[in-house]
Amino acid sequence: MRNRVLENVIGWGISAVLLILAALFLWAPIQVSNPVPEPVDVDRARLGARPIRVAMHDPPSIEVATFDMNCMECHALFESGKMMPGGLQRHNDIEMGHGINTNCFNCHDVERRDRLVLEGGETVGFNQVPQLCGKCHGPTWRDWQQGIHGKTVGSWRGGDERQQRYTCTDCHDPHTPAFKRGTPLPGPNTIRMTPGEGPHHDDGVHRPLAQWINQIAEHGHDDDAPP
């Protein structure tokens, strides 16, 4: 008799559980949400294959009062100093940051301002910048000639017509050649890391692993411990 009661309880119990499960499946009162990070906003202009700056072409020209002027159109008329005693009076958009190389005529020719000057007074056009830079940056010039330094786009095949080698001034501002520091594009999302404190650090620094990294730095690894 007890067995029969037990059987009944189990039978109805299973039925009830199945029915409840069926109801849960169908009406889904508990929404299981799967957190998905928002898509990130990326400056697409930074992703293309084009030089990061516009190099001076040959013959060079600059815009003066909305006119494109060749250097010699002014410099043939006006005498300008061969040294730079009190800084630049013209061309004052130029920001100088080239180490000890602060003299204009280390690179520009004194007489022909639309030419660049090599050692010994020989001049080259603005399209032969690598030769000029190679005066001081010998190893870098050698690497550039071999394709080690610099950037090649279009094709990896030598002789392919799509292949394009960037020259020094396609990437470096000749007056301030060092790259500026910049904000990096977004990193991987951290949505599944330490909710509340992980993704956005209070000081704006995106380093959710900092506490572990610092811990390791302070105490070393477990296997560093003396035996």
Binding site: G182, V205, R207, L209
Partner: peptide, 10 residues
């Protein structure tokens, strides 16, 4: 010890 989540200026 490398951080892949950095967001400061580089």
């Amino acid at each position: 010890r490398g951080n892949q989540y950095y967001s400061e200026k580089t």
